[in-house]
């Protein structure tokens, strides 16, 4: 896209795409039985947010691009969260020998 031409793709197209990705992530979050897949669903949701931020950044904030900086922070945190999540998953797997969310029920009243 050359900077002086209006983009042929409307902003809303990106927003709809982000919405699809976000809702898929939410569905996966609720329904996945494998804990690793739940982590993947969360990554999908974060990517949806990033698409939103990047689209707004280019279309509405083209000079200061704060959205791009925000996205970089989100990417950083997502990486940290994934590392911590997998460490916790690993220590849980050593204790329970399963990654089935339905069997993580030691703490139910």
């Amino acid at each position: 896209m050359s900077p002086d031409l209006p983009s042929p793709i409307p902003l809303q197209a990106y927003l709809v795409l982000a919405a699809i990705l976000f809702c898929t992530g939410v569905w996966g979050l609720i329904n996945s039985r494998n804990a690793v897949r739940v982590l993947m669903s969360i990554e999908l949701m974060l990517n949806a947010v990033n698409i939103n931020l990047m689209a707004f950044s280019t279309y509405l904030d083209g000079q200061l691009i704060r959205g791009q900086v925000f996205t970089i922070f989100v990417i950083t945190v997502a990486a940290a969260e994934a590392a911590v999540g997998l460490a916790i998953l690993l220590s849980l797997y050593r204790n329970r020998e399963t990654v089935d969310m339905e069997r993580f029920n030691l703490l139910r009243w």
Binding site: M1, P3, D4, P6, L11, F56, T58, Y59, L60, D61, G62, Q63, I65
Partner: peptide, 8 residues
Amino acid sequence: WALPGPTP
């Protein structure tokens, strides 16, 4: 949305 924004 505040379209069109400044030039990217």
